[in-house]
């Protein structure tokens, strides 16, 4: 039987579960990062900001965060997805895709028609995931240099 997954807006009490999932995804501890994210994307007025979680039973098994950003780098309003994670034992069940489709609809309702993200070039799994959902190289190039 297919597992029932529900996607809903994150609430304050999801913080611990999200921090755990976030640590699995990035291996890094990020003191202060998640409480700031929750403050900004869950607790405050958030017309153009979306923080969704995937729930299986009573357990959080994934999250996705995105928002509308306008005129950064000269770009017209556009949706950005900047965090996504699915619990390792719940991967390949379509949860990431379900969350991405849901947040895309939220972004569309907020008035944008393009969604962007940025992924580490070495993160083949995540890049392949986004590619599989139809994302491809956009018109902006990320540039960087080491500061002496």
């Amino acid at each position: 039987m297919k597992e029932q997954i529900s996607i809903r807006n994150a609430i304050a009490s999801d913080l611990d579960a999200v921090v755990s999932l976030g640590q699995v995804a990035s291996q890094d501890r990020k003191p202060g990062f998640w409480s700031n994210v929750f403050d900004h994307y869950v607790l405050r007025d958030k017309n153009d900001r979306f923080f969704l979680v995937a729930e299986s039973g009573n357990r959080i098994v994934g999250f996705i965060i995105g928002e509308v950003r306008a005129w950064e780098f000269g770009s017209p309003p556009c949706g950005w997805v900047f965090a996504l994670a699915v619990s390792p034992e719940k991967r390949q069940l379509g949860i990431g895709q379900q969350m991405f489709e849901e947040i895309s609809q939220c972004l569309k309702q907020a008035g944008v028609t393009t969604v962007r993200t940025m992924v580490d070039r070495d993160d083949k799994l995540l890049l392949s995931f986004f590619r599989g959902l139809g994302l491809c190289s956009g018109k902006y190039l990320e540039l960087e240099k080491q500061i002496d």
């Binding site: 070039r121 083949k124 890049l127 392949s128 590619r131 599989g132 139809g134 190289s137």
Partner: peptide, 15 residues
């Protein structure tokens, strides 16, 4: 290489 290394056969077939 970064582009070609992230397009799986499944994605290419879907497209």
């Amino acid at each position: 290489k970064a582009v070609l290394d992230t397009i799986t056969l499944a994605t290419a077939l879907k497209n």
